[in-house]
Amino acid sequence: MNQALPQLFAKCKSENRAALIGYLPAGFPNQRSAKKIIKSMISGGVDAVEIGYPYSDPVMDGPVIQAASEQSLANGTGAEDVFELLAHSAQLGAPSLVMSYWSPIEKYGVAKFAAAITSAGGCGVITPDLTIEESATWRDESTRNEIDRVYVVAPSSSDARLKLVSAQCSGFVYAASLMGVTGTRESVSGNASGLVAKLRTTTQLPIAVGLGVSTKEQAREVASYADGVIVGSAFIKIIQQYGGGRKGLRKVKELAQSLSEGVRNGK
């Protein structure tokens, strides 16, 4: 199996902290800026990167990522851009995954997609709308290509379901902190710590929490019980506000630095 994620989580554990995972859609605000943003995220302290594959019907996403996806698609972003950005991120030394709704993967060809992730140096794929029941081909191809399979579980998941889904994950389990779509929130839902506690009884894998985390305080709070903290909308909002130029890049790096302090003070 690919060792990038296990090594990262082992390192974080030895440093008594959580991993900071940053999300950015490919091609946003354009591909050139996206590369620089990834670089700023990593130099600010992001440990692992999720490259989003923008999709026309993102039902798991709130207004911020919807707008970013729409802009990226208007730029003509396609699979090759996703793999290019993934390779860029991996070359900068961060374990890098793709996060994609299922439709683009199926259309590209499941086997071809898995192979392309490996060739780009990626370590896994997060599939927010692929149920484990529809995963037979994906299980085979991700295994064959030695990439991690990350499914997203939710506070509404039953204990039996958590067991079933986490058994199909590798790398880490993605725990959605709340019932709802992506986007920044005033506070991290109280459901998140309970969900992580339940997951601990069903899986040995690291658990990363996403949805609604945008500040250092929130990162610290989540890091107190989770192994990874996922931040997406907050980075995108900065670019929407300041653009992908020098100012935006500086703000991205500052946010990464501040979140990275957060994940170091949780334990």
């Binding site: 709308d129 149920t131 509404s156 039953s158």
Partner: peptide, 11 residues
């Protein structure tokens, strides 16, 4: 089949 976020499975 079902291609939905896990959050909806219980419902």
């Amino acid at each position: 089949g079902r291609f939905v976020p896990e959050a909806l499975i219980a419902a």
